[in-house]
Simulated scan of single mutants.
Amino acid sequence: MPRFALKIEYDGAPFAGWQAQADQPSVQGAIEAALARLDPGFAAGARIAAAGRTDAGVHATGQVAHADLARDWDPFRLGEALNWHLKPAPVAILAVARVDEDFHARFSAIERRYLFRLLARRAPATHDRGLVWQVLNPLDADAMRKAAAHLVGLHDFTTFRSSICQAKSPVKTLDEITIEEITRPEGREYRFHLRARSFLHNQVRSIVGTLERVGAGSWSPDRVAKALQARDRAACGPVCPPQGLYLTGAGYAQDPFSPARDGGDVRRDVK
């Protein structure tokens, strides 16, 4: 069966998360329902696999999944057909590529990238409502950067791990945290970019929630280092809400969506 990689964008607000659930809407379920209209294998209950299982309310601009189909589709036409059948769900297929059978969206990934958007202003968010976490007062970005530096590298992240996390080990390598500060109308937006091979459940939201306490002046940057060393969930700051979090991409040894690869790309020109 030919295997296809899908690059996916979605608004997570109406979904109970990525993973298919029997009694609640999911991103995976929406895509599989669209595939079922196109492919006999999915009509019989086949499944797709994704690079990351985002939680309820979490968005994506670069989720990656793979699907094994009975029909050997032209990648461009498959992307167009899926987008048609996904309407009106806030899910879009950005790119489709034919990949080798040993490609796996989850297990072949060598990194994941997340963005968290935090808006600081007193006026309510309008255009970005549901797409950012909003606080009222501006934050100290330099203090947050000093605190974040303590978290980069190989650490036991028990403090920043959900109590229901199913990962075998809390030890992870956080490769990068960068914090942008952007001027917005009557406010400031802080964008937290995090990169690692893999993340623990709620790790990003726990880290950003803790850094916000530093930016607000409630915590010193050194307190973040002490919280990490405590290896105790009780030492963590508040877990921030999901609506500001985005899965922005997954990295692979060879980019399946590179124009240089055979198999095409949904973004190519239509002849």
Rank of each mutant, 00 (worst) to 15 (best):
R3I: 06
A5Q: 03
L6P: 03
A13N: 13
F15C: 10
A22I: 04
A22H: 06
Q24W: 07
I31D: 00
E32L: 03
E32V: 07
A33C: 06
L35K: 02
A36W: 00
F42I: 05
F42D: 04
F42Q: 03
A51S: 15
R53D: 01
R53H: 05
T54A: 06
V58Y: 03
T61L: 13
G62R: 03
Q63N: 07
V64Q: 06
A65S: 08
H66D: 01
P75W: 01
L78F: 06
G79W: 01
E80S: 07
E80P: 00
N83I: 08
P90W: 08
I93P: 01
V96S: 04
A97R: 00
F103I: 13
F107S: 13
A109P: 04
E111P: 05
R112Y: 05
R112S: 05
Y114R: 04
L115A: 07
F116H: 07
A120W: 03
R122N: 06
R122M: 10
P124Q: 12
P124S: 12
A125D: 10
T126N: 12
H127F: 15
H127L: 15
H127T: 14
N137C: 10
D140G: 09
D142V: 14
M144I: 10
K146W: 05
A147F: 02
A147R: 00
V152P: 01
G153K: 01
H155W: 08
F157I: 06
T158Y: 07
F160M: 12
F160S: 06
A167Q: 11
K172A: 07
K172L: 09
T173L: 08
L174D: 03
T178R: 11
I179T: 11
E180P: 06
E181W: 07
T183K: 14
R188D: 08
R191Q: 12
L194A: 05
S198I: 04
S198R: 04
L200C: 07
H201E: 05
R205G: 10
S206W: 02
G209P: 00
T210S: 15
V214H: 02
G217R: 09
G217C: 11
S218T: 14
W219Y: 15
S220M: 10
D222Q: 15
R223Q: 15
L228S: 10
Q229T: 12
R231K: 15
R233L: 09
R233Q: 11
R233P: 02
A234D: 15
A235G: 04
C236T: 12
P238G: 10
G244K: 01
G244F: 03
F257P: 00
P259I: 11
R267Q: 09
V270T: 13
